[in-house]
Design a protein around this nucleic acid. Structure first.
Length: 116
RNA sequence: UGAGUAAACCAAAUAGUCGCGGGCACAGUGCCGCAAGGCCGUGCCUGAGGAAAGUCCGAGCUCCGCAGGGCAGGGUGCCGGAUAACGUCCGGUGGAGGUGACUCUAAGGAAAGUGCCACAGAAAACAAACCGCCCGGCACUCAGCAAGGUGAAUAGCGGCUAUUACUAUUGAACUGCAUGUCUUCAGAAGACCUUCUAUUUACCGUGCUGAGUGCCGGGUAAGGGUGAAACGGUGAGGUAAGAGCUCACCAGCAGCUAGGCGACUAGCUGGCUUGGUAAACCCCACCCGGAGCAAGACCUAAUAGGGGGGCGUUAACGUGGCCCGCGUUGUCCCCGGGUAGGUCGCUUGAGGUGCCAGGCAACUGGCAUCCCAGACAGAUGACUAUUCACGACAGAACUCGGCUUACGGUUUGCUCAAUUG
RNA sequence: CGGGGCGUGGCGCAGUUUGGUAGCGCACAUGGUUUGGGACCAUGGGGUCGGGGGUUCGAAUCCCUCCGCCCCGA
């Protein structure tokens, strides 16, 4: 679970990102992102009801959160980010989702290599 | 061993690291905010289910004009009990299914009334009536019998005379006006014919009897391809034919008696019998005010509006669908305040566990013990190691009691079948 | 959390109130018409009435339960 300051909570923040932000996607995830005026990034998740019942949706959300928590240092600060799960994400294990998510973040240029 | 049936239990386990929600303790009184308030560190504890689900019922709790009456509407519906309450549960009764263990059962009233029962069928509900069966009358047809008539055949008794003339025939005459014809023949007989009688047979009409057909009047509901269902069922007697008309058994109804708190059961008696559908309207009995934790309560700076009481009850508006009733708008007096945000509601409860007692049981009582998620964009995940049967259905959002639905496994009791001893 | 509605041939809808025959339009197939196509005319096929259970002689229709979709209010 992310610490509270890194969470994107408000409905109006989601609306703003969807409306004015940019998007990119691969086969399991969609990313929306928009610069904010803070010196940290806030991350939100959206898993549709079409994905499955509550247990399935919770599982996907928790895996995504865990990935973001462990890699929070690699995200470029000052952005609001929303990840949307696509249907193919069901059944994929943690490691593969982590690779997919980080590659997606790198493609849109929000990744900061902690080592570099 | 297999199949089935009923019940109970479990919901992968252990250890470590990182991360998240909540509670408690300690500390800086550090940070954010105008404020109400919130945040940060360390330690310890704790953190989804049997269904958390569907939202199908019932309650608690909260607010609303404190919910009163009538109508309407909705729900429930064998009996008794349990419960805060229930459409739930337990124990019984009746019915249905199953070889059985056992399971299912919206199971009041059809004799309060209304409606419906398609097609088929004579008829679908006051029973009536079509076919049929039976009785009577009339007409017709057929058969038999009786007496009769007519005709025919056969048989029998008769009749067929007999006078004059004449050998005979023919002719004539007279008398009489009586005469069947023919043959043999001379004297009667025979045949045809005919009277009567008898027998047989045919026909005719009459009467009676029987059968059939048609019509009319009546009796009957035993039987009638139907249909889900046909006005009690089966058998015997009985009858013109039949019929609870009578009888036996069965079903059903009413009454009485006995048992049971009761649903009901058993027995006896009686009159012989009144379709189904109420998950159709309805009747009867009982129950139901409405909305729902985004209910609602409190706090707070700026912008800006209410609440309570008295009087009044015409009009308008509103109130769970209508009416009564009630409330607001009116007026007088008094008090200090709405949205966004924050806090509370928010988890100690018809609570869990164990023992004892009561009860067949649901459940209740007593004692001991425990605190067991409380978020507000919403907490359970990832990694490592070990073990196993390699893990189904599935995630709290005010809280309980049920129901329904989804689903993996373990154990036990019981039933049936097969095999072995 | 509460309230309401819908589900019927491939598509859009009737029929449900008051139980007994599942129908209409478009689409599809065949034939005709035309030089050919469209339009038109005629004929025909195609439906577990969302699933299951019950009431009833009989259910798309009545009752219960489950599934899916849509709308509204707080």
């Amino acid at each position: 679970m992310l610490p509270g300051e890194y969470r994107l909570k408000e409905k109006r923040d989601f609306k703003r990102v969807y409306r004015y932000g940019k998007s990119h996607a691969n086969d399991v995830l969609v990313i929306f992102y928009l610069p904010n005026k803070l010196n940290r990034c806030r991350i939100g998740f959206s898993i549709s009801r079409k994905m499955g019942k509550a247990v399935v949706r919770n599982r996907i959300k928790r895996v995504l959160r865990e990935i973001c928590r462990r890699n929070i240092g690699e995200f470029k600060a000052g952005y609001d980010i929303i990840f949307i799960a696509r249907k193919k994400i069901k059944g994929i294990d943690y490691c593969l989702i982590e690779i997919k998510l980080l590659s997606l973040v790198e493609q849109v240029g929000l990744r900061v290599r902690s080592g570099e």
